[in-house]
Amino acid sequence: METIRMAARHWDHLNPIALGDVAGAERYTLDRRDLTPDLWTEADVDVAETSFSRYIQARAAGDERVIALPIFVMRGFRHRCIITRADSPLDTAESLRGKRIGLTGWGDSGNTWTRAVLREAGVGVADTEWRVGALTADHPVMDRIGSIAVPDNVAATENDEPMMKMLERGALDAVMTPFMPPGFYESGSPFRTLFRNSQQAEAAYFTRVGFIPGIHLIGVRAELAENRRQLQELMDLFTTAKNISAARRNKLLDVTPWHNEALAATTQAIGQDWIPYGWSANKVMIDAFQTELVEQSIIGSCMEASELFPLQLEPSHQLEKVSS
């Protein structure tokens, strides 16, 4: 029996696959990575975690080597991803009009969703000054704009200066980042989130749009996608792993001493499953993301659903309680 080689970062909801705790996982191997794998260049990987934005850009350019499944392994609200100085008077998306904003990558899925927060508030790409670079001195110096044609108000940081240094000395008014810099949550930090209550802003956003933004998803090599039965098996493999992870998280994973309270608040606001898999649960979000990519001039036009997700798979079973 041929082994299917998979790669993804260390997501808790994928651990049951790596540990062999999912029935039928014997023919799969899961290489857990510190960095996102590259399905386009890694010949020894068949299935991998992939940037949603990169996937859409590739398909828009006519590159059909990878086909995505509606399995979004990374999701997240983005209001909390805008930070500013603790003494800044700025505290709304509207207040960033005309300001100088740094971000860690222009075409990244997460930053596209974060710019969407501003765009919803009437602050478009043309309404601010943008600088793209490394968050801190520990982050690699690299091209974070790529081949995307950007307007004149978007440029790389000068002399590769870390953006947190720029924010601290006033050269930037805010920074968009998926991960907070060291010490951000400590008492007396010189930085804070732009929204003084980001969770409240995110809950209101969910009420308006009905989804949590999808950032990374599972892609497969096109030749593997010829076997629909095998792809349905993959969908169910990831769904079962998520079920097992959820059941264990409810009992065994204490991320904070207030884990139960946080879990209850999330369930009441969003529901039991905030990482839904499958086409029908994600279609609205997928359409919204394509719209953002077009509005932000990252792709030229939206594609038909059949072009973007040729296989609009659904899980054979949804989130359920699984005994530990």
Rank of each mutant, 00 (worst) to 15 (best):
A8G: 08
Q296M: 10
W113R: 03
T128K: 02
V175N: 02
V220G: 10
I298D: 05
S280D: 14
F179V: 13
F289V: 05
E223H: 12
D254A: 14
D236G: 11
R131S: 00
K283L: 13
A203D: 14
A93V: 10
S95G: 11
L231R: 07
F211C: 00
F195Y: 15
R78G: 03
K251A: 15
D236S: 10
C81M: 05
D273M: 03
A8Y: 04
S316E: 06
A281E: 06
N153P: 06
A281H: 06
L234D: 08
Y55R: 08
A225I: 02
H139R: 09
A246Y: 09
G183L: 09
T114C: 01
G271K: 03
P181L: 03
F72R: 03
L319E: 06
K251W: 12
I244S: 10
R119A: 15
H259G: 10
V284Y: 03
G107W: 01
G183Q: 10
G146C: 04
E49P: 01
D31C: 09
A8Q: 06
L319A: 12
T136Y: 02
P276I: 00
Q268K: 15
I145D: 05
D91V: 01
V150E: 11
D21W: 13
L103K: 00
N153L: 07
V322T: 14
T266D: 05
A149T: 15
D12G: 12
A23L: 13
T207M: 07
S147T: 13
V45S: 11
E158I: 06
T256A: 12
N243K: 11
R5F: 08
E292D: 13
E94A: 15
F77D: 01
R248H: 14
I215P: 02
G98W: 04
T128N: 05
Q312V: 05
A262V: 13
S297Y: 14
A48G: 08
L118F: 02
W40N: 10
G124L: 07
M142I: 03
H259Y: 08
A171M: 04
E161P: 00
S88P: 10
A262L: 14
I82N: 01
E158K: 08
P182G: 11
C81L: 07
G214P: 05
F309S: 05
D44E: 14
D12W: 12
L19P: 04
A121F: 08
D108S: 13
Y277P: 10
V322L: 08
S245A: 15
I286K: 01
K242W: 03
